[in-house]
Design a protein around this nucleic acid. Structure first.
Lengths: 344, 344
DNA sequence: TTGTAAGCGTTATCAG
DNA sequence: CTGATAACGCTTACAA
């Protein structure tokens, strides 16, 4: 006896119809019961549960999303996944959304606006319930897609008050100011700022501006150095060389990130430049190695984990999956913590 | 004039039918043209392209997947996303699959077999084209789902020759042996192994076994220490204390990972224990801070990036999206690099 | 080379 | 409380 040759075959997995047949109910009743919101009698419910277990039924989420025009998917674009900066944000964002039944789609832009645009376009194909990106600098194509997508959009890390998307992050200007104030309070006068060697890191420029503003307020002249070396450690070493050997000598240096600062710190040991006595160094990021260096590195810790968690919460609230906070906007502007260690 | 009230509304986005209507062709012709495999005349193709651009049409991938029973989605479960260990694997896995039009779904198990099972179940709801997990230790439920899913499954990091899923990784036993041989070659005799303070890290036990085997081959007695402190740095300090202050004194210690080794290294500075003269230390993982410590840490670097990339390639090959390698199985067993620095 | 019809697995709608 | 029916947007099968 040959099987009925079906015209076309699906995935081969059990469907809601199989469950319904086995339980002796209509398939819509199964759907309602599994959603736990519809009204299904206890008796049918038990029969359905048994059938689900027996068939190892797993609902097809793509089909459900197609039908309800509401996919439980959220896309997130970050500059990179593996760096020490965004990893904790990704983790908490992912975990928080997973806990509410949402799947996160990830893509990395490598600080390229074009790759970011491609990623957003790819996400849109999954009709996501929401999108998250990093920062406020996007291509015009990306801006257009985000604006017309008709779904909640969150911009993370960089808090820009006036923008349309939900903002969850901190003020880079304030971070730069924070660093400058710390060094001024410690009595340093000739304070330089070293930019990132990686082009495209526009947030570092905001920190520089915050630093510059504070210095000017105190009647001091801002002093920015842009390394030409590409590798962060080399760039840090180069900056230390230039800023301590010239005719004008820095007594404190703020680096765009901890990688640069670590490069300078290692170079200082070899060059015999005492830190912080001859020159204080501080970074940004509080990477894992920063407390382990000798001397340990003073730095500013951005709230990476919190950003991911709060961004996810704001999305869930916008989608109605979580009750809204009373005053959410204020709570989205987070603080960075200055961690004073031995290098200043 | 009121609009025709449609019975139900979809996402509101342009569909393939809108494109077809605007281009004056059948919707199936649009589908074929967009796939670039069907035969569509240049003229119609151009009209379709114009309509796609005008409507900003983005194909609904969930609908396509539902129809073709083949979603371009791959799920990956890792113990954690943000740690220094798996981040690079996630990155390269994700990037490689993205490049071929696949979306990666991510979930973290936090070393819990139960959470891993939940994640795999959630993935199955997306009818993924393939799944990737870390290691070979899973709950029986997970094993059953992986076995009956009918899709390619890759186990990463831990290379276990005889298992059914595709293996991409290295041998932890060999890593432990490698470390032991390095220290023996350097003349150390009283070599101890410190286990991970985190339960559930079964791969560290394999490294211990490899270490033990080599020591026995050389007529030496293996010596394992299990810290009771939970935090890695504390556990490392504790291990150093115990192994150097007792009546039996270690002259070299292999740690289950660089975090533990770093904790010991920092403690050694404060306790005035000269490394490596009085006791050599080595770790595993080559974390970002390891070359920056003083003395810098000898360690073994696992091929995290390569694992992600090769795992993705094997999946693409199994799916026919990439030509198969001549002898893939052999190429999946990767080597770890021993990086000798100052601490040994 | 192009089009028609049917169906993928689910849920919204409406009727019992 | 339960169920039939018709979408959701796309692709396969088949026909022209």
């Amino acid at each position: 006896m040959s099987e009925e040759p079906r015209k076309r075959r699906g995935s081969g997995r059990a469907t809601i119809h199989d469950v319904a047949k086995l339980a002796g109910v209509g398939s819509i009743t199964v759907s309602r019961h599994l959603k736990k919101n519809g009204y299904v009698s206890d008796e049918l419910g038990a029969r359905i549960d048994a059938a689900v277990a027996q068939l190892r039924y797993v609902p097809n989420l793509a089909a459900g999303g197609l039908s309800s025009a509401h996919n439980k998917v959220v896309g997130m674009v970050v500059p990179n996944i593996s760096g020490p900066i965004f990893a904790s944000t990704i983790q908490s964002f992912n975990d928080t959304l997973n806990r509410h039944g949402y799947q996160v789609l990830l893509a990395s832009s490598y600080f390229s606006a074009e790759q970011e645009e491609n990623a957003v376009r790819a996400f849109l194909g999954w009709s996501p319930a929401a999108l998250a990106v990093v920062g406020r600098f996007h291509s015009s194509g990306t801006e257009a897609m985000l604006a017309t997508a008709g779904i909640p959009v969150v911009e993370t890390w960089d808090y820009a008050p006036r923008r349309k998307p939900i903002q969850v992050g901190y003020s880079n200007r304030e971070v730069g100011a924070q660093a400058a104030r710390h060094l001024l309070a410690k009595g340093y006068k000739r304070i330089a700022f070293v930019q990132n060697s990686v082009a495209g890191d526009l947030s570092a420029l905001d920190r520089r501006d915050g630093y510059a503003t504070v210095l000017e307020e105190h009647g001091l002249e801002p002093w920015t150095y842009a390394p030409t070396e590409a590798a962060p450690f080399d760039a840090g070493r180069q900056a230390l060389d230039e800023l301590t050997r010239g005719k004008r000598k820095a007594d404190a240096i703020i680096f765009a990130n901890d990688n640069l600062a670590a490069g300078a710190l290692l170079a200082s040991q070899r060059a015999g430049i005492e830190v912080p006595r001859r020159c204080a160094l501080m970074g940004f990021g509080d990477y894992a190695f920063s407390p382990l260096l000798l001397p340990s590195l003073t730095t500013i810790r951005p709230p990476g984990r919190e950003i991911g968690e709060i961004a996810a919460q704001r999305i869930l609230q916008a989608l109605g999956a979580l009750p809204a906070d009373p005053k959410p906007a204020r709570l989205n502007l987070l603080e960075c913590e200055l961690i004073e260690r031995e290098s200043t």
